[in-house]
Write a protein that binds this DNA or RNA. Structure first.
Length: 127
DNA sequence: GCAATGACGCTCT
DNA sequence: CAGAGCGCCATTG
């Protein structure tokens, strides 16, 4: 069966679960990045950062999902345990103009992306 | 059912 | 800033 434990409070399948993450990742613009944690939150599954990684790991090679635009909360490319696609990830990002520090970090304040509806509501002073 | 396993993250020192 | 420690939670064996 394709069912997943109900602990996440919403009836779903593994497929749709992962799809909700892919939908967010597809919205990350070229040359920008988002964190695993934020992708999880935006997808509606807070605290599921690890599972964003699982979803991306399960992507087919030709999938139309810009998986390389997802990095960890420190702005680093997370290492894989099985493959070495993290090397490709850096190449793809640099090809989009994303800069890395000498320590291999990306400045999230500069390249980090969040959807408009996620941004803090800019409160206009009432006077 | 239970322990181990992650492309994670936050706090504290 | 670097580490350690702990929290997190679906999946896997």
């Amino acid at each position: 069966m394709d069912l997943v434990s109900p602990s996440a409070a919403r009836p779903r399948t593994v497929r749709s679960f992962h799809e909700s993450f892919y939908a967010v990742v597809r919205r990350i613009p070229r040359g920008r990045v988002a964190t695993y944690g934020d992708v999880a939150i935006i997808a509606g599954y807070p605290r599921h950062a690890r599972h964003v990684g699982v979803a991306l790991r399960n992507l087919r090679e030709n999938a139309a999902v810009p998986w390389h635009r997802v990095v960890n909360a420190r702005g680093e490319i997370s290492l894989r345990s099985r493959s070495d696609s993290h090397e490709l990830q850096r190449i793809l990002l640099e090809a989009e103009g994303v800069e890395f520090s000498l320590e291999g970090r990306i400045d999230l304040r500069r390249y980090g992306w969040r959807p408009p509806e996620y941004r803090r509501p800019t409160m206009r002073p009432p006077w």
